[in-house]
Amino acid sequence: MNQSLLLQLFLTTLALGAPTPDFHIESNTVGYGTGGGIVGLIVLVLDVLVFIEVLKSNRPPVHKICWILIVFLFPIVGMLIYFLFSNREAHNSGGSYEPLP
């Protein structure tokens, strides 16, 4: 149920981020993708939440770095891949950060 809610949120942000038919770049920052405006703020907040969840997980440090790079390089697609395919329940330690050796 949690994944379906996240998928709906993701699809809603994509729908809001679609460009408008007129391509005037004057004051409409909501209609031009994730580069700014409300949609960009939502994507930024969700990506930061993914970073925090990855860092708090009990994954090996190499896997943490890989997930963070995927989400950093591809903010929307990486976040969607993380929420759908990362097996979050198995790696949820609920603890603190794991120090690097």
Rank of each mutant, 00 (worst) to 15 (best):
N2A: 06
S4F: 04
L5N: 08
L5D: 14
L9R: 02
T12R: 07
T12A: 09
L14F: 09
A15D: 02
A15C: 02
A15H: 06
A15K: 05
L16W: 08
L16Y: 04
G17D: 12
G17C: 14
G17R: 15
A18C: 06
P19H: 12
P19C: 05
T20H: 03
P21A: 10
H24G: 15
H24D: 08
I25Q: 01
E26D: 03
S27D: 06
N28T: 14
Y32K: 05
Y32H: 06
G33R: 12
G35L: 15
G35W: 08
G36F: 08
V39D: 05
V39N: 04
V39R: 03
G40T: 05
L41C: 14
L41T: 08
I42N: 14
I42V: 10
V43D: 10
V43E: 14
V43K: 15
L44T: 13
D47Q: 13
D47C: 13
V48G: 07
F51W: 02
E53P: 05
L55R: 03
K56H: 07
K56N: 02
S57I: 05
S57E: 06
N58E: 00
R59I: 12
P61H: 03
V62C: 01
H63D: 04
H63I: 02
I68W: 00
I70N: 01
I70D: 00
I70L: 04
V71N: 01
F72D: 01
F72A: 02
F72N: 03
P75S: 06
P75L: 09
M79G: 10
L80G: 07
F83R: 02
F83T: 00
L84A: 03
F85V: 03
S86D: 07
S86M: 05
N87H: 09
N87A: 06
E89Q: 11
E89V: 07
H91P: 15
G94R: 00
G94W: 01
G94E: 00
G95Y: 05
S96H: 01
S96E: 01
